[in-house]
Design a protein around this nucleic acid. Structure first.
Lengths: 308, 308
DNA sequence: TTGAAAGCGGTACCAT
DNA sequence: ATGGTACCGCTTTCAA
């Protein structure tokens, strides 16, 4: 039945017939018990409700499906215990590997794991990982902002504990520093919209004549957009805004948000492929895959006159 | 170990010690093999990338987690084959039950299932299900629209194959019919934003002086909002808009969208509870749980002067 | 109370 | 080429 060696055609036929008639399909659990590995993989993410993660998750799932693997998933809420909990039950279910999008602050969770783990949207030097080129993203954002003639730029620095957020920040800072524009750096501690609304108000009070905002992600950019509109500014005439991520929501805003796109779906697929490769080759060598970002020009930035 | 009968304290201690020392945790696969059921449940949804579903999924997960069940999920893309495929592997993995948010057009998939299935966000008379009171939602939307003085209302009728969309439509139609306002019904075939953009353009061409739109869901409402803004209408002064669902995105729009809220997260939890109950009681009796909807007043509707 | 054994449904190996 | 058997790790039952 597993196509090993030679089989009489008759028996083959008989067996296939039986399979059809009985509507037989093998019991994965028994298989998994004997082989000590299932066709399941574990997926850990902070919160599926946050619009950035479904894209990644979908990429992982689609790629895994091609290879007949299924996904057990868990929302960790960045809670160390939940994370540990899920990791345990993943192992109890003989998952073949884990893809984690959680903050690897809690790296300790992943030490001495008998199964491969790849990090997604997280940089890591101790583990294989897949992420976007945030630093370059920051550079691009700053470039585009300057090129399009903003002169008093606000750079919003995302949560310090998120490496990816810091990369973006550093990239943008690098470009702004070596340019001739004025700029103002605003530190923030989360990506929550509620918080971002407050910062946005603050921002326009403290730096009333800013004419360009580089936000730490699209949610924060949305809050800035709101506040700009609310205070009667014209977009993009009075103020330009660039976000980061390109979540689906961003193109649905009015005006649609210009942003730096992370290829989230592709990142998910790459992570899945990487995990699969690691499993196949049993080489647990650390491999970090960085995907390129791109500027998505929509309507919160002005036309680049020089290039028209 | 399973607290059955009496055990010497000494042996108990010894065992517990060993458990700790060896960092032992039971193999769920072996358990599942013997018991013929795992602690896994299968979750089927059209597309996790669509912002409405993560809310439901999160509800299901959180409730299941409380009872130590884990989730295997699959996106079906409303594709009969994928759906069938996932259902099969769910069974191969001894899931204890399935929660499905797919279109039960393909109901045939669910006949003669040896394990319980509950439908979520779908009405069904053949199976247990959890859904929101769409009809009442439609009524509320129409009421609010009229109460707030729209006189030439457009009612957008969602995809015919979605029972939930039809319920909303019927509810709104019922109220509009028995009122004195003029209204125009526009039929649509999907919830995609791209399509909705076209319909929105159409709408304002064909019915230029409409002053109130009841959209089939929040995505469609967003497209209408866009087009209204683009054509220079003032919201809510010139035109009011009410959506349906209350996805997170809706409060992030500018102006924030007034909408009929489905308690998605709670629906997810209820579905999980229902499934768990069915499993516990082995009664496979059909139970349909309907949850109430509510009007979320934001800024695409005017103040209700009469009630101030 | 505790230990031994059978069986869940597959896979892999060995002998026929 | 095919049939038999041990084993994966746990639960349950039965005997000691």
């Amino acid at each position: 039945m597993n196509e090993t060696g030679y089989v009489h055609e008759d028996t083959k036929k008989a067996v296939n017939l039986a399979i059809e008639q009985l509507n037989y399909s093998p019991n994965e659990v028994a298989r998994s018990l004997y082989k000590r590995k299932s066709r399941l993989i574990g997926l850990l993410l902070p919160d599926i409700t946050n619009p950035f993660f479904p894209l990644l998750a979908r990429g992982v799932e689609d790629e895994m499906r091609l290879h007949d693997f299924r996904i057990i998933f868990g929302n960790t809420d960045e809670d160390h215990e939940k994370e540990q909990d899920y990791i345990q039950t993943f192992q109890q279910n003989n998952v073949i590997g884990i893809i984690s999008m959680t903050n690897n602050l809690s790296k300790s969770n992943y030490n001495d794991m008998p199964i491969p783990v790849v990090f997604l949207d997280r940089t890591s030097s101790n583990h294989p990982s897949v992420y976007a080129d945030g630093k370059e993203g920051g550079r691009i954002a700053a470039h585009e902002m300057i090129k399009r003639n903003s002169k008093r730029i606000t750079l919003i620095k995302g949560p310090a504990h998120l490496q990816t957020a810091q990369d973006r920040f550093k990239g943008a800072l690098e470009v702004l520093s070596s340019s001739n524009v004025d700029f103002y750096v605003m530190s923030t501690t989360s990506f929550s919209f509620k918080d971002a609304e407050k910062w946005a108000r603050d921002l326009f009070e403290k730096y009333e004549d800013t004419d360009g905002v580089i936000a730490s992600n699209d949610i924060v950019a949305t809050a800035v957009l709101h506040e700009a509109l609310r205070t009667g500014r014209k977009i993009p005439e009075d103020i330009q805004i660039i976000g980061f991520d390109d979540i689906p929501h961003s193109s649905l805003l009015f005006p649609p948000l210009s942003t730096i796109r992370q290829p989230a779906y592709e990142m998910g697929r790459e992570a899945a492929k990487l995990l699969l490769n690691i499993i196949k080759n049993k080489k647990l060598d650390i491999k970090n895959i960085q995907l390129p970002v791109s500027f998505i020009e929509r309507s919160t930035t002005r036309k680049d006159e020089a290039n028209v």
